[in-house]
Write a protein that binds this DNA or RNA. Structure first.
Lengths: 225, 225
DNA sequence: CCAAAAGTGTTCCGTCTACACCCATGG
DNA sequence: CCATGGGTGTAGACGGAACACTTTTGG
């Protein structure tokens, strides 16, 4: 049975994680300087090799966990990147994943521990290998998704103000949004619930805090922002 | 330098081709019965292993060429499929690609030569491994793309009638379209050119043949159908 | 002469967009 | 008392959807 495979070649397989965050009204991505060869010192995504006994999705989850200590994070595959020379050392095909996390959940200790930092998506340096391309593609996919699926809440704290939500959409889509029209649309989605709580940090007057109610969403899933 | 890689495992990598065609007002896909183990006799996509000296895209192009003899075909990556047990023989990660071809360009000899046939997308049998899932995902991607990019013409002959084009959109989107509204939209896209030629096969009266003009499209690329 | 597909405009309705002012509070 | 962000409604424009009849011609 294995004779069918025998004549073929095996290849190194890795995963790379594009970890998006939203902070100070900017979209950010976690990158660090490579601490190993090849490419030591270059800016790079965080990644890891795929093991023989784990699926690609599991490898991505494990890699994200190593870096962030988080589980059950929203992650989606971006695609496989397979130029012959993409890795300067060996032939390595890499499958990219993007993850959405709430920056506040990421401890500063981990930043220094792994030598990574949040960098503004619009001010990215040149990255190792094809990582810039991976990020571009991930961003495009995320932009599409965020219009019709409630993934924005993954980037926000559990309780958020409508202005925060609006700013998020503004930076993702790269254009300003009319406040009244935006709130009108939000009001039609019952799964974006107003709570009794008020956020006093963002303004003198205070802003109502909202939350995403998944139970309601699962019954009536039409989302459009 | 290679010590960094040494401890990691290499994995078999394959590509699988989802070849879409449009015929008799139906969307079709090319599948065949496997002529090798594992899975001999099961319905399957056509695929092949990735070589160490070719990119993923090149491997997909080569595999498609083996099957169809065609080059420069519209192909896009669907994604990487990497469950541990997806291949019953060995650990194999596969990258799926979808291709759009004009059924008329595919000779009947090749069908029998490779033991493949055109099967209606809505009447697919159970396929080998995760191939049904690959096709589902490919179809979804293609559905999205065809709304905003002029890929429909890859599925049609160089000269086509507006009714053909409309039927194609109807089967892709799974719903009927109003003829007058459809033609109004077509008329606004200058790169869908009316020719002097008339197709007499499809009707007594005869229908004007149109063609896609890429040069004009490249200057003014807004497509919406 | 009739069946079968080609071809052609207008009206209506709902959705999206533009737009400006008052409120509450901390300092 | 004023600067700052929070919060609210309406009218007009635009684009999409609905809709029916005439034409041509092979058999």
């Amino acid at each position: 049975m294995t004779s069918f495979y025998f004549e073929h070649q095996k290849i190194f397989l890795s995963v790379d994680c594009i970890i998006f965050g939203f902070d100070a009204n900017k979209l950010k991505v976690l990158i660090g300087k490579r601490q190993m060869d090849p490419g030591r010192g270059e800016w790079s995504l965080y990644g890891g090799f795929v093991r023989n006994d784990e699926s690609l999705d599991d490898a991505a989850d494990r890699t994200l966990y190593e870096l962030t200590g988080m589980r059950n994070v929203y992650m989606r595959q971006v695609g496989a990147f397979g130029s012959v020379d993409r890795d300067p050392g060996e032939r390595v095909v890499s499958v990219a994943y993007y993850a959405l996390i709430n920056v506040k959940d990421y401890s500063k200790k981990l930043l220094t521990l792994h030598g990574v930092e949040w960098v503004d998506l619009d001010e990215l340096p040149q990255l190792y290998s094809d990582h810039n391309e991976m990020i571009r593609k991930a961003r495009k996919l995320m932009q599409q998704k965020i219009k019709t699926e409630p993934i924005s809440f993954q980037l926000l704290p559990p309780l958020f103000t409508l202005t925060q939500l609006q700013r998020l959409y503004e930076v993702v889509n790269g254009e300003e949004v009319d406040k009244r029209n935006f709130r009108k649309r939000v009001k039609e989605m019952d799964f974006i619930e107003k709570t009794e709580l008020i956020d006093k940090k963002s303004s003198r007057r205070g802003a109502s805090l909202y939350r995403f109610n998944k139970k309601i969403y699962d019954k009536d899933s039409n989302f459009k922002l």
